[in-house]
Amino acid sequence: MPTQPPVRIGARGSKLSLAQAGHMQRRIAAALGADPDKPAQVEAAAPLIVITTTGDRVQDRRLLEIGGKGMFTKEIEEALLDGRIDCAVHSLKDMPALVPDGLCIAAIPEREDPRDAFLSLKAERLEDLPLGAVLGTASLRRQAQMLHRRPDLDVRMLRGNVDTRLAKLAAGDADAILLAYAGLKRLGLGDRAQSLIDPIECPPAPGQGALAIETRVGDCDAAWVQAISHAPTTIAVAAERGALAALEGSCKTAIGAHAWFEGAHLKLIVEALSTDGQRRFRHAGEADMTELADPQASARDLGLSLGLAVKADAGDAIEI
């Protein structure tokens, strides 16, 4: 059994958040010395505390209308700062570019598939949808990318958890929807995807598919934190979030970034679009990660440089 005090985990109450948090709960408990196959030990070592966020409560408006993607993290981060919990499990794509003072992204486990999934009862691919088909999404990035490829589409706002969106698709509220493939897989619903969107042609949200373990600054280097971190994922998402920071990305801007390794080379593509999809600005680059003193910082610098290049090209064309 663990010899140190329990690590209290904060997470949102959605089915997907609880699935992700439960997976990390077992990983954290094991790192603390508990048997991950014994629920009582897991709960004692790393109890899970559910926190409802503004983003969960308000489901009838886009996030940009209620304060941006921070609405999924604000209440949880307040609980961290107040000492009510010891760490939080977030979907990294939901985290703003800046973390509040006193907190840090302490660990990023190995990433799940970062691609967007295309779901429809009428078509296998976006290209197969009929003219003027209704596409449901609450993401400005997905809206802009799909309109860039199919300007005839009727894009309508569709929020809610995964089950809610699938139910709306089944009810005919949309001819197709887009969801993060990672979330579907974590819920055991990966087979619901008709096809997957090419992440180079349409880069996903920065950090999509990755989880972030957020702690207070004093716990960033704790042994249990280091035990669950995955270096290649951490480096790749550092590049993507560098681009996010350079573009001042939020739910008000249509930004995609995708980083991947080919051997020791980290490759990155960054894009931003006007919300109607008519204008797209892209830059790509790479960096050799061999024998670098701080590969994470170098990856972030790559993302910053490409993000700034996109921003210089786009000007105010990507603002709403």
Score class of each variant (00 low, 15 high):
residue 142 R to V: 14
residue 144 A to D: 00
residue 146 M to I: 00
residue 148 H to W: 04
residue 150 R to E: 08
residue 151 P to A: 04
residue 160 G to S: 07
residue 161 N to E: 15
residue 162 V to K: 02
residue 162 V to E: 15
residue 165 R to P: 05
residue 165 R to L: 08
residue 168 K to V: 01
residue 168 K to G: 02
residue 169 L to S: 08
residue 171 A to N: 13
residue 172 G to M: 08
residue 172 G to P: 12
residue 173 D to Q: 14
residue 174 A to Q: 02
residue 176 A to H: 13
residue 178 L to A: 13
residue 180 A to L: 11
residue 180 A to V: 12
residue 182 A to I: 11
residue 184 L to Q: 07
residue 186 R to S: 12
residue 195 S to T: 11
residue 198 D to R: 05
residue 201 E to M: 10
residue 202 C to L: 12
residue 203 P to T: 04
residue 207 G to W: 03
residue 207 G to N: 09
residue 208 Q to G: 04
residue 212 A to Y: 03
residue 212 A to P: 07
residue 214 E to N: 07
residue 215 T to W: 03
residue 215 T to R: 09
residue 220 C to I: 12
residue 221 D to F: 07
residue 223 A to D: 14
residue 223 A to T: 13
residue 224 W to Q: 05
residue 229 S to V: 05
residue 230 H to N: 14
residue 234 T to D: 14
residue 237 V to T: 15
residue 238 A to E: 09
residue 241 R to H: 10
residue 242 G to W: 03
residue 244 L to P: 00
residue 244 L to C: 09
residue 246 A to H: 04
residue 247 L to R: 01
residue 252 K to E: 00
residue 252 K to H: 03
residue 254 A to S: 10
residue 255 I to F: 02
residue 258 H to M: 04
residue 263 G to C: 03
residue 265 H to G: 02
residue 265 H to E: 09
residue 266 L to A: 04
residue 268 L to N: 03
residue 270 V to C: 11
residue 273 L to F: 01
residue 276 D to R: 02
residue 276 D to L: 00
residue 280 R to W: 06
residue 280 R to V: 05
residue 281 F to H: 10
residue 287 A to R: 13
